[in-house]
Amino acid sequence: MIMSIIRGKNVKGAKSAVVFAVCALLLGCDNASSVESKFENYLERLANVQQKDTVKVVTPTPEYPRKRELFQQPSRQTVGLVDALQLSKCHLMELVAERNTVLGKVQDQFRSLEYEVALLGGLKSCLATSELGVELNEDLQRIYSIKWQELPLHISNTLYSSDSLYANAFSTNWYTKETNQGLYSLKKVLQQLSSLHAHYDKGQLPEEFDILSFQEEIEKYDQLGRISHSLQSATLYLQASTQQLKQHDSIVFCGKNRDTTKYRRLKNVFQKYYIGEIQPYLADLNSAYHTLSPHIDILYSVKLDNQYHHPVQSAYNEYKQVTINHAQYWMSLFQRCGDQVGQSG
């Protein structure tokens, strides 16, 4: 299509359109890389004013667990062919038959979870009838009991070892509001899984359960990973910036008959770079986290070793404390110098 446009009459205009389209595609990457440069620039400006070496920021290489370490194998319960035919009375024959096809046996975690929920709902309705033989009733009671006990395991597998959520969970890219595609779908999936788990705790099943409609989009993007990476990286830069300020606080003078040059220049850095650039980004990052936070607890309700739990919640808690510590330094400096926080001039 691009070549056909270029062969047209307005070649110059077509080339410009192509260049613009490519730039638009790359814009997300440029915005993401510029986020880190804002933190780096802020730290360097502080060091320049102090005329001291910049505190080094060491970003560790992330180590992500493998999916097979996160997967928990459920048991496999079967029903004989003759008994399965009796399930047609409960409208379960089609569901079970589909599951037993070649494709059904290798279906992904999203479809598998929807199947388990549908099967439990069907079994519950089936057992409530009086149309089953005694032996089949006992078999189905046993299968229902096992399936019910294993439902949290299927929730865990969907959260941690499904291709879609595993792809979404880990990233080395910064979050930006320009690259937040899939955030709403991720929220809806976590919300659905949270609701399912809450119903399970009450011994119930939800009337509606749908996560398949959001699967494709969340697999395309890495919002949970981006948010976690950004929280962790912002934490490192803010820790370094606070250390930079505290380490050389004694050379910043203020008051009458003192050389207040460093204080005034630090104050300008605070206004221009922290208030002007860092804080707006942190506001966007906070907004992204809080979009998901009402449903994030579902990530920690699963029976996995703590070492495998997703880092987003602990990353936010640490980030929140570090931002408070950083703000407290500036408050103490302004108070020491008789200024209101952030007052220009």
Rank of each mutant, 00 (worst) to 15 (best):
I2M: 09
M3F: 09
I5R: 08
N10T: 02
S16L: 15
V19T: 13
C29A: 13
V35K: 13
L43F: 15
V49L: 00
Q50K: 07
K52C: 09
K52E: 14
D53V: 15
T59L: 10
P60Y: 11
K67E: 09
E69H: 12
S75E: 06
S75L: 09
R76N: 14
Q77N: 09
Q77G: 12
T78P: 07
G80E: 10
A84N: 11
S88L: 12
C90W: 02
H91F: 10
H91K: 15
H91T: 09
M93D: 14
V96Y: 01
E98Q: 13
R99W: 05
T101V: 00
G104V: 00
S112I: 05
V117M: 04
G121I: 06
L123Q: 12
S125D: 12
A128M: 00
E131Q: 14
G133M: 10
E138V: 14
S156A: 15
Y160F: 13
S162G: 05
S171G: 08
N173W: 05
T176S: 06
K177G: 02
Q181D: 04
G182F: 03
Y184P: 03
K187G: 06
V189T: 15
L190I: 08
Q192L: 03
L193E: 04
H197T: 02
H197E: 04
A198K: 12
A198R: 13
A198M: 07
H199R: 07
Y200M: 05
G203Q: 00
G203R: 02
Q204A: 14
E207I: 11
E216C: 08
E217D: 15
E217R: 15
E219C: 09
E219H: 15
L224P: 01
G225L: 07
I227W: 03
S228K: 01
L231F: 13
A234F: 11
S241Q: 00
Q244C: 08
N257G: 04
D259A: 04
T260S: 01
K262I: 10
R264G: 07
R265A: 01
F270Q: 00
K272L: 02
Y274L: 08
I275Q: 07
G276T: 07
E277L: 06
I278E: 04
P280D: 09
H290C: 01
I296A: 00
K303I: 07
L304V: 11
D305G: 12
N306K: 13
E318Y: 06
N325V: 10
G345L: 10
